[in-house]
Amino acid sequence: MDFNLNLILGQMVLGLVNGAFYAILSLGLSIIFGLLGVINFAHGVFFMLGAFAAYMLSEVFGIGYWPALILVPLMIGALGVVVEVTLIRSLYKLDHLYGLLLTLGLAFAIEGLIRIVFGPQGLPYSIPDSLRGAINLGFMFLPYYRAWVVIAGIILCLSVWLVIERTPLGAKLRAATDNPQMVQAFGINVPVMLTLTYAAGVALAGIGGVMAAPIMSVDPAMGTNIVIVVFAVVVIGGMGSIFGSILTGLALGLLEGFTKAVFAEASSTVIFVVMVIVLIARPRGLFGKMA
């Protein structure tokens, strides 16, 4: 091991790019788990579908990256509504385990379907013209697109957090997470709220997918690959903590980048090592409220 500061800083900045995706995905998972009590194993699939939707919009309709950033979450959110109403809704009265099994099965089924239609190979999606090029940070050349992912990802996550913590809509969500029955007794249609929350959570994953399309390979397994890490992030951060999941996502991206620079062989396992340590020392996660 030799320590090269520029290399370390460079890898940590790139790690932050992954961290932004971890944060976006674990944020959605946290919101869904908090209100619905469902561990959404299909979350990665919605991320992957987001990337494929961006690809299809571009290939079939010639619709570019920027409109896709708006259109794709709407499409994925609509799909989320269908999934919640037809499948997930029937699980609320059952143990969490059933939700996990159903969404895992759903993930396999959708991923298989995409593989049949598009094949297993990665598909190209180009970086929008306005974000081509790179900036010299002194210690590295950072592609504009990656800088955009980090900044937009953080802004997106903080906006969602602000909506939840500071608006009447967010207060409804928090109240329904505390005591859904009472919220419904006040005249709020909680079943509709659950549907929309699931839709919003997976729409976030869809935005993540669009943002990932230009820098990750658009392939059927991309969701599964990232969601395994994201579940470790959620376990470390603690289920149900919104801010915790954002912070943990970014921090673990940084850690992954750092490890890549100093001990590359461990970079894909370091998050799981942290997960094991956190599970031993603090089973409910760093920010988790529940056991």
């Binding site: 009447p168 207060a171 409804k172 928090r174 109240a175 997470t177 505390d178 005591n179 009472m182 919220v183 006040f186």
Partner: peptide
């Protein structure tokens, strides 16, 4: 609701 402020509880 423990996650809500007094004002938010009132306005919920």
């Amino acid at each position: 609701f423990p996650s809500l402020s007094v004002h938010e509880n009132l306005m919920l």
